[in-house]
Simulated scan of single mutants.
Amino acid sequence: MAARTPAWIMPDHLTALGVAGAAFTGACYAATVFSPLFLIGASLGLFINWVGDSLDGNLARYRGIERPRYGFFVDHTSDIFSQMVVSFGLGLSIYMRFDVACLVLIAYLMVSVYTYIRMQATRVMQISYAGFGPTELRILMLGMHVVAYTVGPKQYQVPMIGPLSIFDMGALLLFVIGVVSVFVGAISTAKQIANEDQPPVPAPGE
C-alpha cells in the first residue's frame, strides 16, 4: 500500500485521515439512536481509521522521510483523541451505557500509559499483548457491529449494577482484562528491571 500511495499524500495526511475516521465512527455510534443502520457508517469509519493509523508510519519509512520523535508524538497523541471520540460515541449509542464506555476508555489509557512507561524503562515498544493489538481490536468491533444489528440493544437487569446490554457486559470484561493485564505486566517488568538494574556495590572501606 505504501508503494502505491500517490506522491502528494504525506504521512501527516494519513494521520489526519485516521483521526477523521475515528471521529466519523464515534458520530455514527451516537447516531444509532436514530437508526441502527448507522452501524454501517461506523464500520466504514473504523476501516478509514485503520488505513490512516496503520499506513502513516509505514509510508514515512518506505520513502525514507521518517522523523522518529515527531512521528511517535503525533501518532500516539492522535490515538488518544481517536479512542476518546470512539468511546464517547459508544457511550451515546443505544448499545452501551456511557459509564461503561468510559471504563473501556480508562482501560485503554491504562494500557497505553503502561506501554509508554515500559518503553522508557526497557527501550522495548510493545503494542500487542497475547497476540491482541489495535488491528485485532478493530476486527472485534466490526464483529460487534454485526451482533448489534442482529440482536439489538436488549438489556438485562444485573443485581447491584443495573441494566446491561451484552455489549456492556463485553466491555466490562475488556475493562477487567485490561486492568489485570497492566497489573500483571507491571509486576513482571518491575522484576525484570530489578534484576538488570542492580544497586552499585560499595567500594572496600566505604
Rank of each mutant, 00 (worst) to 15 (best):
N49I: 02
E66K: 06
L140H: 07
T150D: 14
L174F: 09
F98V: 02
L55T: 12
G26L: 09
P159W: 10
V147Y: 12
Y149V: 04
S93K: 06
S43C: 13
P163M: 07
A3R: 08
Q192M: 13
W50P: 06
T122C: 05
T32Y: 02
F183R: 05
S188N: 14
A31Q: 11
Y29C: 15
R123G: 03
H13E: 12
I139W: 14
L17H: 13
M141H: 10
G91E: 07
A194D: 07
G162Q: 04
P68N: 02
G52L: 12
E136T: 09
A194F: 14
C102Y: 15
G170P: 11
I94Y: 03
G133V: 09
H76Y: 15
S82P: 00
C28P: 01
G143N: 15
V104T: 10
I48F: 14
Q83K: 09
Q157H: 06
G45A: 14
A171G: 12
G41Y: 08
P199E: 06
L172T: 01
I117G: 14
A186N: 06
V176G: 06
V184G: 00
L55Q: 15
M110I: 06
A27K: 01
G143T: 11
M10F: 11
G71P: 01
W50Q: 11
A42G: 04
F47Q: 13
S165H: 01
A121S: 06
Y70K: 08
R97Q: 14
G170T: 00
L142Q: 10
V85G: 12
H13W: 06
A16H: 05
C28Y: 01
T150A: 13
V158Y: 01
S43F: 08
M119G: 10
Q126P: 02
V180S: 09
L172E: 01
F34I: 14
F24Q: 03
A203Y: 03
F183S: 08
I166L: 09
E136C: 04
W8N: 15
V184I: 07
A107H: 04
I166M: 14
P202C: 10
A107C: 11
V176C: 05
E66G: 09
L55V: 12
C28F: 09
L164P: 15
Q83A: 03
M10C: 05
M141Q: 13
S43K: 05
P202L: 12
G131C: 01
G133M: 06
T150I: 13
S82T: 01
M84T: 07
G185Q: 04
T150E: 12
G64L: 15
